[in-house]
């Protein structure tokens, strides 16, 4: 069914697969980079909720586009709609957290009820109306890379350049803002603006991946590469670069495997590959990894030295 030789043969011979892999690789790399911020801001689940909520934007935009100009416009509006849906959900969560005693987790659950609920209701309406092009929306549920067109790839490329460009341009600002809010505010950074810019870029990264990984599983591509990369490096730039590589490889593996094996959706394969990186890193990372730590403890015990104070602080729900 699958062997490494066929894998590479396919990679180099099949034109469609090359194009599709290029698309998923870009998706993985962008999620990898922006995922680092979602991870470090401790907003992993926020990524999941934003992705869920984008379904509301997708279906609303699709209906609006169909009403205004037919199926072509409808498909063109889907991505902007997804972006707005995600941003709206974030704004909603922030409103609830800031104006009620409810905490972020409940606000996020509410966002699922409102936005995903409305999205599902609209999706079923679109399906029962049999609007032209409604089958295309199915790809956003669990992700399907194989049906990507050249135009899809071009869209991904442009958005990827925008997202990566913003994160490079504001590299040191985003870094300081994420690490030490008080200090950043003290030297005069406009905290709300930076917050909005960073969150919007994270939503953009999620939206880029919706078509290939789907509204349920894109969170995996956002969180896993970052969580894995964190174990190997001690700098943010190293983390972002490694995370991009992990995401990129996940994307290529997902696209290729699902092209080779019949009835294998792309999204889940990408998600599982990304998860594999997390567990490999959890055990085998050279300094922080579980095995490295166990070895160090064993050695320390043998030499009867006091244990090093190398446990990372923080973390943990």
């Amino acid at each position: 069914m699958f062997d490494i030789v066929t894998f590479f043969q396919l990679m180099f011979s099949d034109h469609t697969l090359r194009v599709v892999s290029l698309g998923t690789a870009m998706v993985g790399a962008v999620s990898g980079v922006l995922g680092c911020y979602a991870y470090l801001r401790k907003q992993a689940m926020m990524g999941a909720i934003v992705a869920h909520a984008s379904l509301f934007g997708i279906t609303t935009a699709f209906l609006l586009g169909t009403a205004l100009g037919g199926s072509v416009l409808a498909m063109q509006l889907v991505l902007p709609g997804a972006f707005l849906g995600g941003v709206l959900a974030m704004a909603f969560v922030s409103l609830v957290v800031h104006t009620t005693p409810l905490k972020a987790d409940a606000a996020m659950g509410l966002a699922v009820a409102i936005f995903f609920g409305a999205g599902i209701a609209l999706l079923r309406m679109i399906q029962s109306l049999s609007l032209m092009g409604h089958r295309g929306l199915r790809d956003f549920l669990f992700g399907q890379a194989a049906t990507m067109t050249n135009a899809d790839i071009r869209t991904i490329a442009v958005l990827a350049v925008v997202a990566i460009g913003i994160s490079l341009l504001f590299w040191k600002e985003f870094k300081l803002h994420t690490f030490d809010r008080d200090f950043a505010a003290g030297i005069g950074y406009p905290m709300h603006r930076l917050d909005q810019l960073l969150l919007a870029t994270i939503v953009l990264a999620i939206v880029i991946g919706l078509r290939t990984v789907g509204v349920i599983l894109i969170v995996s591509l956002l969180v896993c590469p970052a969580a894995a990369a964190r174990q190997w490096t001690k700098s943010l730039s190293g983390m972002a670069a490694l995370s991009a590589v992990f995401g990129l490889v996940s994307g290529i593996v997902g696209a290729t495997l699902s092209a080779m094996v019949r009835n294998l959706p792309t999204g889940p394969v990408i998600a599982l590959t990304a998860t594999a990186f997390v567990f490999l890193s959890l055990f085998f990372a050279p300094h922080r990894g579980v095995i490295a730590r166990a070895l160090r403890r064993a050695r320390n015990r043998k030499h009867l030295r006091p244990p090093e104070a190398t446990l990372p602080v923080g973390g943990g729900v």
Partner: peptide, 10 residues
């Protein structure tokens, strides 16, 4: 204590 000391930086 206002920052996360597990942030990846030197």
């Amino acid at each position: 204590t206002s920052v996360d000391w597990d942030f990846p930086t030197t």
